[in-house]
Nucleic acid binder design. Structure first.
Length: 506
RNA sequence: GCCCCCAUCGUCUAGAGGCCUAGGACGCCACCCUUUCAAGGUGGAGAUCAGGGGUUCGAAUCCCCUUGGGGGCACCA
C-alpha cells in the first residue's frame, strides 16, 4: 500500500516551526516510500483564519522545499489532486452530510444545551474535582422533547456518541497506546449550533474521505486520537496508522510557543537562515540517522528517513546548533548562489542604514560576488552580511582615536604607522592594487620599523573599517578600493593629529 | 482533578542484554594555524544512563514502583 500522508495547517497564525517539522516528516515519509504528500488547509475557525496567514504558510512550505502532490488552488491556479477541494471551508457540505449520516444512525444526536448550562456543568465538575465532561443531558431526549425544543427555536449542536470502551492503536513511534473512552470528556460536539463543523470531526471526515493512510502529527494530538478512531469507525472508514512526533520545546521544556521562543518560520527566513540548514536542523529534532553523520540535504534525508527512528522524547529548540548547521550549509553554497542569496540581505541592511540617516553607496554589479570569498566562512546567517561589510558601503565610518591605537601601541606610533602605511599603499599603482601586491610592502614596512606586523595591520584595519574584526586585511583593502583606502587612512591620520593638537595645546 | 506520553552530558542525540571504564554533534575551555574575526585541526572538562526494586551469569537497554517533566481533557485548531 503506497502511503498517503498530509500536512494540515490551520491559517490562524504564521507557519510555526512545529508545523514545519511535522510537514517535513510527512514529506520525508511520503517521498521515502514513494507515496503521496498532501496539503490540506484547516480553516474552519473562520474567526481566526486569514488569507495572509495561509499565504505565509504556503510560502514557508515552498521555501523549505516541501512540494506537495495534492493541495488547494492557489493564486488562481486550480487545486491539484483527485480529492479537491483541499480547503476545509469549501468542504462544509461534506461535513454536514457526514453528520447527517451519523444522526440517522443515531451515532450522533442533537444537543440543545445552552452555553450557560455547559459552563455551569463545568464549574460543578471542577468543584467536585472531576474531569470536565459532557453530562449527557440531551443524549436520550424523546422525539417529543426534541420537537418541543425545535418548536421553541432552540438551536442545536450535533454531538457524537462516545461509548464506553478501551480504544487501542499501535503508534508507529510509541508502540501500543490504550485509552479508555471515559477519559474523553463525554459525547463530543461535531457540529456547532450554527452548523459549522469542529476540528476533530473535520480531521476524521477528511482523512477518511481523502484516503489518508498514515497520520503523522505532533504528540499534542495523542490524547485526541481515540476520538478520531471512534469517528473513523462510525464513518465506516479504515482507521489510518498513527505516528505522534515528539514536541519541540522551549528552553524550559514546555511546548514551544511564541511567547517564549521565536516560532515563525518567516522570522528565520528574514534573519538569513538558508533552507538547507533549516531543513537539516528540523530533521535532527527528533530523528537521527543512527550514524555519526548529521549534515543531510533534503534528498539525503528522503533516502535515509525511517519513521521508526524517530524517538519519543521532546526536543528543546537550540538556536546555536541551528546557526552552526546553517553556517555549514552556507559554506557549502556555490559562490554565485551565495551572492544571489546575499543581495537582498545587503540591500535591506543598506536601506535601514539610509533610513537612519547614513550616506550610503549601493553595491555595483557583481560586487557582491567578489565579496563572497571574504564572507562565506564568516556568516552564521545571511543577515550577518551587513555587520561584516557595511564599511564598504558607508560614506562615513565611525572611528575614535582610542579605537585607532592598537593595544600595544601609543598614539604617536600609531600616527607614524598610519602615515607610513598610507605612503606605502599609495606606492601601489591602481592597476596592481591586489592583495598579493599589498601584503609584501606592508610587511616590509613593519619589519623596517621594528613593528609587529599584526599591530600595523590592526591600525590600518581600524582606520579603514572602523572595526577590529573584519575579513582578511588585504582583501578588504582591495574590496574598498585604492581611493577610498587612501582617503580613510588620511581621515585617520587627521583624527589623530587633531587629537594630539587638542591634548598638547589644551 | 482525570487520562495519556516521556526520561542518556547544559542542548540535540547514538545506544534495540555482554562490543559501554556510555560514542558523536552544538556550546564551553585550552592549544595549533593565523594580520583581526571567522573557518579548520588537535585535545579537555562535561552523563553515578532520574531514583529504587526486580528479571538475568550479565542491564543505559526487559518488567514494576516512585519521582520529575510534558501533553491532552472546548459549540479552538
Amino acid at each position: 500500500m503506497t502511503p498517503r500522508v498530509r500536512i494540515a495547517p490551520s491559517p490562524t497564525g504564521p507557519l510555526h516551526i512545529g508545523t514545519a517539522r511535522t510537514a517535513l516528516f510527512n514529506y520525508l515519509y511520503a517521498r521515502h516510500h514513494g507515496g503521496t504528500f498532501m496539503l490540506r488547509v484547516e480553516d474552519t475557525d473562520q474567526a481566526r483564519s486569514t488569507l495572509a496567514y495561509e499565504r505565509d504558510i504556503l510560502d514557508g512550505l515552498h521555501w523549505l522545499g516541501l512540494s506537495w502532490d495534492e493541495g488547494p488552488e492557489v493564486a488562481g491556479r486550480p487545486a491539484v489532486g483527485p480529492y479537491a477541494p483541499y480547503r476545509q471551508s469549501e468542504r462544509t457540505q461534506l461535513y454536514r452530510e457526514a453528520a447527517d449520516r451519523l444522526l440517522q444512525q443515531d451515532r450522533a444526536y442533537a444537543c440543545y444545551c445552552s452555553r450557560e448550562q455547559l459552563e455551569a456543568d463545568k464549574r460543578a465538575q471542577e468543584a467536585a474535582h472531576q474531569p470536565p465532561h459532557y453530562v449527557g443531558r440531551c443524549a436520550s431526549l424523546t422525539p417529543e422533547q426534541r420537537r418541543l425544543n425545535e418548536a421553541q427555536g432552540i438551536a442545536s449542536a450535533v454531538r457524537f456518541r462516545v461509548g464506553r470502551e478501551l480504544v487501542a492503536f499501535d503508534d508507529l513511534i510509541r508502540g501500543r497506546v490504550e485509552i479508555d473512552t471515559t477519559a474523553l470528556g463525554g459525547d463530543l460536539v461535531i457540529l456547532r449550533s450554527d452548523g459549522t463543523p469542529l476540528y476533530h470531526f473535520t480531521v476524521a471526515v477528511d482523512d477518511a474521505t481523502m484516503a489518508i493512510t498514515h497520520v503523522i502529527r505532533g504528540e499534542d494530538h495523542l490524547s485526541n486520537t481515540p476520538k478520531h478512531i471512534l469517528l473513523f469507525r462510525a464513518l465506516g472508514a479504515d482507521v489510518p496508522q498513527f505516528a505522534h512526533l515528539p514536541l519541540i520545546l522551549n528552553a524550559d521544556r514546555t511546548k514551544m510557543s511564541k511567547r517564549k521562543s521565536q516560532t515563525a518560520v518567516s522570522d528565520y527566513v528574514a534573519q538569513g537562515f538558508v533552507r538547507e540548514g533549516f531543513v537539516n536542523y528540523l530533521a535532527l529534532l527528533g530523528w537521527a540517522s543512527g550514524t555519526e553523520e548529521e549534515l543531510f540535504s533534503l534528498d539525503e534525508l528522503v533516502e535515509r528517513f525511517e519513521i521508526e527512528r524517530v524517538h519519543s522524547g521532546g526536543a528543546v529548540f537550540d538556536r546555536e546548533r541551528l546557526e552552526w548547521l546553517n553556517g555549514q550549509w552556507i559554506r557549502r553554497l556555490g559562490p554565485d548562489d551565495l551572492a544571489e542569496r546575499l543581495a537582498g540581505f545587503l540591500a535591506a541592511e543598506l536601506d535601514a542604514r539610509e533610513a537612519a540617516g547614513a550616506r550610503i553607496r549601493r553595491p555595483a554589479q557583481d560586487e557582491i560576488r567578489t565579496l563572497v570569498p571574504l564572507v562565506q566562512e564568516r556568516l552564521p546567517v545571511l543577515g550577518a552580511i551587513g555587520d561584516l561589510v557595511d564599511f564598504l558601503f558607508l560614506g562615513e565610518i565611525a572611528v575614535t582615536p582610542e579605537m585607532l591605537v592598537p593595544k600595544r601601541w601609543d598614539e604617536r606610533t600609531t600616527l607614524e604607522a598610519l602615515k607610513a602605511a598610507r605612503a606605502t599603499i599609495a606606492d601601489v599603482p591602481p592597476v596592481t592594487f591586489e592583495a598579493d601586491e599589498l601584503e609584501p610592502p606592508l610587511r616590509a614596512l613593519a619589519d623596517e620599523r621594528g613593528w609587529k606586523a599584526g599591530d600595523l595591520f590592526m591600525a590600518i584595519r581600524v582606520a579603514i573599517t572602523g572595526r577590529t574584526a573584519t575579513p582578511p586585511l588585504f582583501d578588504t583593502l582591495v574590496a574598498l578600493g585604492r581611493d577610498r583606502t587612501l582617503q580613510r587612512l588620511e581621515d585617520g591620520i587627521r583624527l589623530l593629529e587633531t587629537e594630539k593638537a587638542t591634548v598638547t595645546g589644551g
